[in-house]
Design a protein around this nucleic acid. Sequence first.
RNA 1: GGCCCUAUCGUCUAGCCCGGUCUAGGACAUCAGAUUUUCAAUCUGAAAACACGGGUUCGAAUCCCGUUGGGGCUACCA
Length: 435
Amino acid sequence: MIITRIAPSPTGFLHLGTARTALFNFLFAKKMAGKMYLRIEDTDRKRSQKIYEKDIITGLKWLGIKWEGDVIRQFERRKEYRRYIDRLMEYGFAYKADGAIWLNVEAALTGKKLSIIEFDDLIRGKISFPGHKIKDFVIVASNGSPLFLLTNVIDDYLMGVTHIIRGEDHISNTPRQILLFKTLGMDLPKYAHIPLILAPDRSKMSKRAGAVSLLEYRKNGILPETLVNFLFLLGFHPKNDKEFLTLSEMAQEFDLKRVQKAGAIFDETKLLSINSWYIRNLPKDKVLDYLKEFVKVKISKQKFKKYFAITRDRMERLTDFQDRVKFLEKLPDYSSELLIFKKSTLKDTKYALNLVYIRLRKAQAGAWKREDLIKKELEQVVAENNLSNGDVFWSARVALSGLSASPQPSEIAWALGREESLERIKRAIGKIIKI
RNA sequence: GGCCCUAUCGUCUAGCCCGGUCUAGGACAUCAGAUUUUCAAUCUGAAAACACGGGUUCGAAUCCCGUUGGGGCUACCA
């Protein structure tokens, strides 16, 4: 049975790197019909905080990354570590100095043929370190806390972890951990070190000042489907060039051998393009559900749906909705000149607007229920009066929206309804006769 | 500095392991055009890369060595 784990320390918010490591562990376990555990590495009592732990758990859940069983916390397991520490001391593999407990590397190395410590990384192949470069290191701090290098190894053993998939920044920890495994007489897990996510300046993303919680992306109108898909593509490439995948499809495609070796720069533009794709292509009800959180103004359910229908193609983030929809709730001020299409004239515009008004006022109630029927009405105005599309559609659009860029006039009219639409056109006519 | 990892378009990457089919493919971004109303969406097209130098070979993006660049670690953090 394949067992993986994700082992974040609650000393900061969940960031992209941890999220991607979690994703890869999750996908690998899923693909291999194995399990993934979540282990909170909170041995550093000073820096560990509950709010970070909560942030990490909420973030992973939001992404749809699921782990086996309960959350495991290292602080609750501190008695386990004691046994192994005692054993190391007893056999002379560890010693006390300056109040801390150190691993005696020379003693640990003896008889283990470790002049070169080598392991076969599932992503990078053979990696080797000269054994003599390893210096004694602290395994228990002077305040009594067992440290990462040690607890990480003990827990991976105790939990039966078979595959350690973690960030590249841990490569240099690996020889010391292998030494620990061997000294404690434990079997070695397999390692796979994934590349780091880099900021646009090529530095380690999580290191960057102001690295915020992954949940900030949720707050900023990014869908979880987007983020997971984006993270997946950062350092991995499915065989068939497929760009948009569900979690199950990702697991299906996942293969450690295809994971990239070099660091990847985080590109927000790509994130946004994926996001707008998901806004447009996910089932409507699902997007509507996500969108609910972002609607601050009080509008009826019916209006909400209509507004969504005509702005959906124009959103990059869910947070765009409010702005895109403002003009529907309240007609913005606009200059009368805006009503005149660049290839049209004052006279034609006046004429067109009047005709549009008359036509729409006479339109049957049924026509207002369908956007395409309203569009037909407008097209009739063009056809029957020797006007251009620009004369009619531009002026109607501006009359209805007050904007130079907006959805189509028929869409706006449909979303606005008969009363408000006619009112707005009437107002436009009032404006234009004053020119 | 030491140790380790790494190197294809601006960015994410395919191809590399098993050299020829690569005049190097896709996506995002950019630019142009179409959709004869704006914006978006959509469609079409363009520009854009094998870091460099040596080998090996009939032949190298693909194998080897070196150089250079980038990154990580170098804590009684994880």
